[in-house]
């Protein structure tokens, strides 16, 4: 109400006075603006400026002529048409969606659950130790992880030693796609659970401790406290991260997929990212690779927009915009 009133007053002021008000406001918030400046420059430089390069998806790109100077493709969407005519395009899209969805299904809730569990720990030293240990995998290179998976998944590897301990026979887990998702998603959870939990732990640290005192007086058990205090606290963060994660469904970790590929599983686990790597980096077909990636980006944008629309309808407070 107060905002609406000031807006109405502001719109009635002459332009000069409105400018003065605006700059006063800027001056008043200068600290916050300076704080946001590096991030804004970073995003403008590395996210918006390169967007100009998208144009080559529609061009017959000639290096020396530059992006703008290169002739337009005939027909304009030739590179997109080429992708959809590619015999394996359907397979690539399906694999990407499948791997992305399953990964999100497990990697998204894992840090939340981990953070809620950590939050319930009482011993401060033990809690810190667990937290620190959980961060370590995040700093291990994906190349090393892929090498570990190849070694652990072989018939003599660690995974088979565990299988044999439980009376199961040894299998080559690197062959085909039977164990691929298990190893891919399992390693992704292990890799990111600790690091991903930081944001939720930060949100949980904002809980008003008197709520817990009241809950204790009311005789609430641990589960009830998690359900009625901790979970509602991290709900807005969770929703925003979920919306953003939906956009990553089509952006699988192609480096790991590439490293886990072999002649027994290539087509079964080939994703758009690995295909773009082959045509873009290895073969240098920038315009075609850009078109394929642009298709993924547009699809991701639609997914994010849809997720946000659904969220806004369900709970407008938690939507991104």
């Amino acid at each position: 109400m107060k905002n609406q009133k000031s807006k109405a007053v502001n719109s009635k002021l002459p332009t000069g006075q409105r400018m003065v008000r605006f700059f006063r406001l800027v001056w008043k918030q200068k600290d916050l603006l300076v704080l946001a400046l590096p991030a804004t420059i970073l995003i403008a430089l590395f996210k918006y400026y390169p967007m100009y390069g998208i144009l080559i998806a529609l061009k017959d790109y000639k290096t020396k002529m530059g992006i703008w100077g290169s002739p337009w493709e005939v027909p304009l969407f030739n590179n997109f048409i080429r992708f959809f005519n590619y015999v394996d395009a359907g397979n690539l899209i399906w694999n990407t969606v499948k791997i992305g969805l399953v990964t999100m299904l497990f990697t998204f809730p894992a840090p939340i659950i981990f953070a809620l569990l950590l939050n319930e720990l009482r011993g401060k030293i033990f809690k810190s130790a667990v937290q620190t240990v959980s961060y370590i995998p995040y700093f291990i290179s994906v190349v090393v992880i892929a090498g570990m998976l190849n070694s652990f998944g072989s018939t003599d590897g660690l995974f088979n030693v565990i299988r044999q301990f439980f009376g199961l026979s040894a299998v080559n887990m690197n062959a085909g796609d039977k164990y691929f998702l298990l190893m891919y998603v399992g390693s992704a959870v292990w890799h990111g659970v600790g690091w991903g939990s930081i944001i939720y732990l930060a949100a949980l640290s904002n809980v008003d401790t008197t709520l817990y005192d009241v809950a204790n007086i009311d005789g609430a058990n641990r589960w009830q406290k998690v359900k009625n205090i901790a979970w509602p606290t991290i709900m807005p963060t969770t929703t925003i991260l979920l919306i953003m994660n939906v956009g990553n469904v089509l952006q699988s970790d192609y480096t790991k997929v590439l490293l886990m590929q072999n002649d027994t599983n290539r087509s079964l686990i080939d994703v758009i990212g690995t295909y773009v790597y082959r045509i873009g980096v290895e073969r240098g077909e920038f315009e075609y690779a850009t078109a394929v990636n642009l298709f993924v980006s547009i699809a991701s944008l639609i997914l994010v927009y849809s997720a946000n629309t659904v969220t806004r309808k369900l709970n407008p407070e938690n939507s991104l915009w």
Binding site: G147, N150, S154, N172, N262, T264
Partner: peptide, 11 residues
């Protein structure tokens, strides 16, 4: 060896 197609150089 059935793992002829999956063993990387190190393995």
């Amino acid at each position: 060896d059935p793992e002829f197609g999956t063993d990387d150089g190190a393995t």
